[in-house]
């Protein structure tokens, strides 16, 4: 079974969102998503300064076999990206919720966070997909 930490919010496109409480969020892909993709060999990161709208394609995770888009789960400006993934994309597989984070956003509006899935709702979505 995949790991779905209770303290995070989720998007149905399989990103997780950690609310830092200061108007910024950290975003990555879920344990379920990394397991589906298999061993990652390349992560195309968004650019710092990019202004994203919820639903925008903003990066790509590629495993040996497949490429999958990363979507912005909420709107905001990219303020930091995880450069460690440029040389070690496998961090997304081994530690998807910590060392494998992908980018940080400065939120346009914290109100958008309420539209995201809770851990329970995301777990149900994953179970329904299986």
């Amino acid at each position: 079974m995949s790991n779905v930490p209770a303290n995070l919010k989720y998007a149905d496109s399989h990103e997780w969102i950690l609310d830092q409480g200061d108007g910024t969020v950290t975003i990555g892909i879920t344990d379920h998503a990394q397991a589906l993709l298999g061993d990652l060999v390349f992560v195309e990161l968004p650019e710092v300064g990019a202004q994203l709208t919820a639903g925008d394609e903003c990066g790509v995770v590629e495993s040996v076999k497949a490429a999958s888009d990363i979507y912005a789960p909420v709107s905001g400006e990219v303020i930091e990206i995880n450069h460690a993934l440029e040389d070690s994309p496998e961090l997304v597989n081994s530690d998807p919720y910590a060392a494998g984070w992908i980018f940080k956003l400065k939120l346009d509006s914290t109100a958008e966070l309420t539209g995201l899935l809770t851990a329970n709702a995301y777990s149900e979505l994953v179970a329904a997909e299986a």
Binding site: G38, D39, V41, S63, V64, K65
Partner: peptide
């Protein structure tokens, strides 16, 4: 079987 855990390994 596509893999048994890790294709790279």
């Amino acid at each position: 079987p596509i893999h048994y855990g890790s294709q790279l390994q």
